[in-house]
Simulated scan of single mutants.
Amino acid sequence: MDAAMDVLATLTPYLQTLSHYLAIATKHANPPNNVLGLILFVAYIAAAIYATTAISLSLWRGYTRISLPQTATGKDDHKRIQDVQRARKRHIKIYAFLASVSFASLTYHMGLFLVESYAAWVAGKIGVKTVSVEDAWKTADLQRVKGWVLESALFEGFARELVGDGPSAVWSMGAVVGGWFWGVWMVQKVNARGFSTKEMLPYILLTQTLPISLTITLFIIKLHLASPDLSNNPPSPPPPSSKPLSRKPTSLTLPTILLNISLLSLPSLRNTPYFLPLVLVIRIVLLSPWSRRVSLKDDQVVQSIAISGGFVMAQVFLLRKVSPGGVGELVRGVWNGGEAVRAMGVDALVGVAVHLVLGWGGGV
């Protein structure tokens, strides 16, 4: 007993210090002084801008290189390279167009989300139910904007809007699950092509800050630019990993089940303290295929797709139980929801378009 008391006495100052800093963090993580939330939201935007810019510049440099005349050993070889270049550039332009649509949609809906958030804050300040966006921005100044960003939970508000009602939750779940399997496909391609982790960091960062359609279109452009048939040299096999796995990789089905259970639980936890931690757990799970500790065998991918399909159907079934509108309301939900839901809905549609174009051909 004396030993336990001694240990407790030793730990007490540290526990008091930890409690002090937790109190400070809590004070600055909630309105009306939500500094940490503001930092997180701004960090997301800054990371997305950085990753998009870095990837775009890298792809542009690669595109200008394949646009230059290639050295060939003979007339037939030169013609082959020119034909390949024309085909690759045609596909690259298609994916660049889809990337532009995705980026424009995300920018538009995110901008509207911020504008509507400010208008709602102004309405609350003056004690009315709603204020038009035009009237709200007529009164905007530096002091008001500062008050808005500190008294609002922008990051959490965006996440809550995604599961604000049944149709929104279904669309959001479908978009996130689709992003999950696009991420798995990306990692498979990275492993096959032997891209380095450093080379892929901007793409990984972009998958964590924006919906998947922009990242996947830019990544497919990278695959086209890195295609071995753009040169006369035979493709070299990917370099072997310098860090062998110390244990057997985890089956892909396990993080898939965890992801789907988390997504299915989000709507019911929307107004609880567990909501935001669960959102962060989902972000971590989405990173797991990049860890090399998850098996990405084709049979496990097929199993995971089937499992995810079952969970999505369960979400649709729950919607039908609580909503008389049924499928019609689900279809309209992406347009009737908030700007966050519309952004995810457009992302899902662009992802489908990318899948169709990818199936059309291109050799990636």
Score class of each variant (00 low, 15 high):
Gly337Pro: 07
Phe275Ser: 08
Ser246Asn: 09
Asp135Phe: 01
Gln85Arg: 04
Ala340Leu: 03
Thr107Met: 14
Gln85Pro: 07
Ala314Glu: 11
Ile212Trp: 14
Pro211Ser: 03
Ser102Thr: 05
Ala96Ile: 02
Arg293Asn: 13
Gln315Tyr: 09
Pro228Asp: 08
Thr209Glu: 06
Gly183Trp: 05
Leu318Ala: 14
Thr217His: 05
Ala348Ile: 09
Val331Cys: 10
Leu162Ser: 06
Gly345Leu: 09
Asp229Leu: 09
Asn34Ile: 05
Ile94Phe: 12
Thr256Pro: 05
Ala46Phe: 15
Gly361Phe: 12
Leu206Trp: 10
Gly178Ala: 04
Val131Trp: 04
Leu205Cys: 10
Tyr108Leu: 11
Arg193Met: 11
Ser231Asn: 00
Glu199Gln: 06
Tyr108Arg: 03
Ile282Pro: 14
Phe311Arg: 05
Ser288Cys: 00
Gln82Leu: 15
Glu161Thr: 02
Tyr118Ala: 02
Tyr274Trp: 15
Ile216Tyr: 10
Leu210Trp: 05
Ala153Pro: 04
Ile204Lys: 13
Gly325Pro: 11
Ser105Ala: 06
Asp83Ser: 10
Lys27Glu: 14
Asn191Ile: 10
Lys89Gln: 14
Val312Trp: 15
Val133Glu: 15
Thr12Ser: 07
Ser117Gln: 13
Leu154Glu: 07
Ala51Ser: 11
Ile257Asn: 00
Val334Cys: 11
Pro238Lys: 00
Val322Lys: 15
Ser242Ile: 09
Val312Leu: 15
Phe317Glu: 10
Phe103Gly: 06
Pro267Met: 03
Thr52Trp: 02
Gly351Glu: 08
Gln300Arg: 04
Val279Phe: 12
Ala136Gln: 02
Gly328Met: 02
Lys129Val: 13
Asp299Ile: 02
Leu22Cys: 13
Asn34Thr: 05
Ser56Val: 03
Leu356Glu: 08
Gly157Met: 07
Arg292Pro: 06
Pro324Asn: 00
Ala120His: 12
Ile92Met: 08
Asp347Ala: 05
Tyr50Cys: 11
Val331Trp: 12
Val84Ser: 09
Met186Arg: 03
Gly361Asn: 12
Asp298Gln: 15
Leu59Pro: 07
Arg61Met: 13
Ile66Asp: 06
Trp137Ile: 02
Val176Gly: 02
Leu258Tyr: 01
Ala314Asn: 07
Pro289Leu: 07
Lys189Phe: 13
Gly178Lys: 00
Ala153Tyr: 04
Leu106Glu: 13
Tyr274Phe: 15
Val316Tyr: 03
Arg332Ile: 10
Leu11Trp: 10
Val316Ile: 09
Ser132Gln: 04
Leu330Cys: 07
Ser236Phe: 06
Ile94Gly: 11
Leu106Lys: 01
Asn232Ile: 09
Tyr108Phe: 14
Ile92Asn: 02
Arg293Gln: 14
Val334Thr: 15
Val35Phe: 08
Gly178Asp: 04
Tyr108Pro: 06
